[in-house]
Design a protein around this nucleic acid. Structure first.
Length: 555
RNA sequence: GCCCCCGUAGCUCAGUAGGAUAGAGCGACGGUUUCCUAAACCGUAGGUCGCAGGUUCGAUUCCUGCCGGGGGUACCA
C-alpha cells in the first residue's frame, strides 16, 4: 500500500534528519501517522508529524515540516511534497504513477484486495446463532450481513477465518419448544391440550406439527399426560435448523461450522471448565444454586451457573463453549456478534475467559443495537416468544437479498435500526444498491462493445494517456480499497464498505460522463480507457463481493 | 439507582485510532440526452456537530456533568 510506503518514507526522513542533526533526538511515533486530507489541494496523503513533534523538539512546526520535506527519500510515486500551515506535510502522487496503477490492478486481480495484516492468525467469527426454536426474523439479518462481511474482510486482510453458527439445541428453550410442538401435534388429533403458557405462539409451530403428522402419522402420540417425545422435539429442531440454513444461504451467508450446544457437554468441555473454575475457588454454592463468584473479580454481583433445578444456565454453557473455542480448537482470537439485549453477558463471559488464564482481549464481542421493524405506522415485534414475527425470509422476498444486505451493512453496529418495510420496498427502485450495481453493468456493456474499436498503436493501450481529472479521481478511489480493508479488519466496522462502494460508483459514473471510452477516432486513448474500465469493474466487483452482493453484467 | 450504546443538514446516516474551510444519499429547487445503458450527470439551498465545562497548538472525535432516546440490570436466552 502506497500509504504505508509513505509512512515508512516519513520515518526514514525523520531518521535522516536526526542523523544530520537537523532534528533533535526526540522519540518518533511508530508508525508515522499518515492521513488522507479532506481537500484535494492538500494532496493525496499528509502527515501532521511536525505539529506533534513541535513541543518535544522545541521548534516551529513549519520549520520541522521543511526539514522533513528536505530529507524525504525520492520516489516515483510522489510528484510533490509541500509544507503547509499550521504544520502539515502534504504529498501529491504523480499522475504517471497513478495511471500505472491501472496495469497493476488488472495484473493483481483479486489479490489487489488482499493484504497481510492478519499474518495468518487464526480467528473465529460467530454470528447470528439464533435458537432453533423458530425461523430467523428480520433483525437476525443484520448480524448475518455484518458477520459475513466481517469474515470476508478479515480473510482479505490475511487472517485465517472460520465462520461459525452456534445452535442452542439443548436447554430450557428447546424443552419449551418441544412441549409447544407436542401440544400442537396432539391438537391435530383432537386432543384438547392447551399451548404451554411460556410456549411459542407463532403460527409456524402449527405448520411444523402438520409436517410431523405427515411424517410420523400418529406414532408420536403418547398416553395423555406424558411428556413430549424426544424424537418429535428432535424432528422439530432439525426442521427449524433447515429453515435457518436455507434463509442464510439465500442471503449468500456461508458458515464453516454449525456447532451444537450439545457438543459442549458431549466433549467434556463443560465439566472441564467447571472443574477449572472450582480449582480457582471461583465457584460457590448458595440458595440451592451454583454461582460463578464474579464479585471476587471485576463485577458487582455473582452469576448463576447451575440453577437450583440442576439445569445449567446459558452463561455456563457459553463458558464451556468458549473453553472449546480457545483451548480445544486453539483460536488466537474469537469475535462474537451479539444483539444489545445480550450485553449483560459480556462482562461475566470475559471474566470467565480471564479465569481460564487467557487474555480477555482475545475475545472481542461486538454488541450491535437492535432492529425494530415497522410497516408504516405499525411497529412490529421481533420476538419469537411473543409470536407475531416478521421473518427474514419475508424481508428477503419483499426487498431482495442485495438490498437487504446493503441496508443492514450500511449502518454502524452502534446505532439502532428502524426498518420500515413499506419504505424499503418503495425505495428499492432508487436504491443505492442499483446505483452501484449499475456502474458495474455499465462497464460490462462498454467492454462488450470494445471489439468495434481499431487496434491500439502499441497493441494494448498505454495507460500513461490517462491524464483527465475524472480518470485520475477514479484511480485514486480504487486505491482506497486495500486501506479500507485494513481499517475494517482493525476496527471491525464493515459499515464503511457500502459507503465506499457508493463513492467508487460515483467516481465511475463521473468518468463515464466526462470521458468517452470507445472512440474510433482515438484508438490509443480508447484502449487505455478500456483498461481503466476493466480495472474499475474488477474493484467494484471485489467490493460488492466483500458485502456478499451480486455484480450483474446487465441490468 | 447503576451499566452499555446513541444524539451531526428537512429525513436516513458517514466522518477511517484529535488535525487544515464538517460530508454523502434521499427529499426540495434549477439544468443536461444527434454520442459506450438517463437505474446517469451538473448546479443551488440547507449545520451554534444535544447543552455546559475541561484537556490540547488544535475537539464532531478524548474526559466530567446535565438533557433526550434505545438496551441491560432474572436461578430467560
Amino acid at each position: 500500500m502506497i500509504r504505508d510506503e509513505i509512512g515508512r518514507m516519513v520515518q526514514e526522513a525523520a531518521g535522516r534528519a536526526q542523523e544530520a542533526g537537523d532534528l533533535p533526538a526526540v522519540a518518533l511515533p511508530d508508525p508515522a501517522a499518515i492521513e488522507r486530507p479532506q481537500r484535494p489541494e492538500h494532496g493525496d496523503y499528509a502527515t501532521s508529524l511536525p505539529l506533534r513533534l513541535a513541543r518535544a523538539a522545541r521548534a516551529k512546526p513549519l520549520d520541522l515540516g521543511a526539514i522533513l520535506a528536505r530529507h524525504m527519500p525520492a520516489s516515483d510515486a510522489i510528484e510533490r511534497v509541500e509544507v503547509a500551515p499550521p504544520g502539515f506535510v502534504n504529498f501529491h502522487l504523480s499522475q504517471r504513477w497513478l495511471a500505472a496503477q491501472v496495469d497493476e490492478i488488472i495484473a493483481a486481480g483479486p489479490a489487489f484486495a488482499q493484504i497481510d495484516a492478519g499474518a495468518g492468525q487464526k480467528v473465529q467469527v460467530e454470528f447470528v446463532s439464533a435458537n432453533p426454536t423458530g425461523p430467523l426474523h428480520a433483525g437476525n439479518g443484520r448480524w448475518a450481513a455484518l458477520g459475513s462481511a466481517l469474515v470476508r474482510v478479515l480473510r482479505a486482510a490475511g487472517y485465517q477465518v472460520e465462520a461459525e453458527y452456534y445452535f442452542n439445541d439443548a436447554g430450557t428453550q428447546i424443552e419449551v419448544f418441544g412441549r409447544t410442538l407436542y401440544a400442537r401435534y396432539q391438537q391435530l388429533f383432537g386432543r384438547d391440550v392447551p399451548l404451554p403458557e411460556d410456549g411459542y405462539p407463532g403460527g409456524y409451530m402449527a405448520d411444523l406439527a402438520e409436517q410431523a403428522r405427515e411424517k410420523f402419522g400418529e406414532s408420536m402420540l403418547k398416553p395423555e399426560g406424558e411428556p413430549a417425545p424426544e424424537e418429535l422435539t428432535n424432528y422439530g429442531v432439525e426442521q427449524v435448523m433447515g429453515w435457518i440454513r436455507s434463509d442464510l444461504s439465500s442471503l449468500g451467508v456461508e458458515y464453516d461450522t454449525w456447532y451444537r450446544e450439545q457438543t459442549v457437554y458431549d466433549s467434556g468441555n463443560f465439566d472441564k471448565v467447571m472443574a477449572l473454575l472450582r480449582e480457582r475457588s471461583l465457584v460457590i454454592e448458595r440458595e440451592g444454586a451454583v454461582w460463578f463468584a464474579t464479585s471476587q473479580m471485576d463485577a458487582d454481583k455473582d452469576e448463576v451457573l447451575i440453577r437450583s433445578s440442576g439445569l445449567p444456565t446459558y452463561l455456563s454453557t457459553d463458558i464451556g463453549y468458549h473453553y472449546d473455542k480457545f483451548i480445544t480448537r486453539k483460536f488466537d482470537r474469537v469475535i462474537d456478534i451479539w444483539g444489545a439485549d445480550h450485553q449483560g453477558h459480556v462482562r461475566p463471559l470475559k471474566l470467565a475467559i480471564e479465569a481460564m488464564g487467557l487474555d480477555q482481549e482475545r475475545l472481542q464481542i461486538i454488541i450491535g443495537q437492535l432492529v425494530t421493524l415497522r410497516r408504516g405506522q405499525e411497529t412490529l415485534k421481533l420476538s419469537k416468544r411473543s409470536g407475531d414475527i416478521v421473518t427474514l425470509r419475508e424481508v428477503i422476498d419483499e426487498v431482495g437479498a442485495d438490498a437487504c444486505l446493503y441496508f443492514f451493512l450500511s449502518r454502524s453496529a452502534d446505532v439502532p435500526i428502524d426498518f420500515d418495510l413499506e419504505l424499503a420496498k418503495q425505495q428499492s427502485a432508487e436504491n443505492p444498491v442499483y446505483y452501484i450495481q449499475y456502474a458495474h453493468a455499465r462497464i460490462a456493456g462498454i467492454l462488450d462493445r470494445a471489439g468495434d474499436l481499431p487496434a491500439a498503436g502499441d497493441g494494448e493501450g498505454d495507460v500513461s494517456l490517462l491524464t483527465h481529472e475524472a480518470e485520475l479521481a477514479l484511480i485514486r478511489k480504487m486505491l482506497v480499497l486495500p486501506e479500507l480493508i485494513e481499517a475494517i479488519a482493525r476496527t471491525l466496522e464493515p459499515h464503511h464498505l457500502p459507503h465506499y462502494a457508493q463513492e467508487l460508483a460515483t467516481s465511475f459514473h463521473d468518468f463515464y460522463e466526462k470521458c468517452r471510452v470507445i472512440d474510433p477516432e482515438q484508438p490509443d486513448l480508447s484502449h487505455a480507457r478500456l483498461k481503466l474500465a476493466t480495472a474499475a469493474k474488477s474493484v467494484l466487483a471485489m467490493t460488492l463481493e466483500l458485502m456478499g452482493m451480486s455484480a450483474p453484467d446487465k441490468m
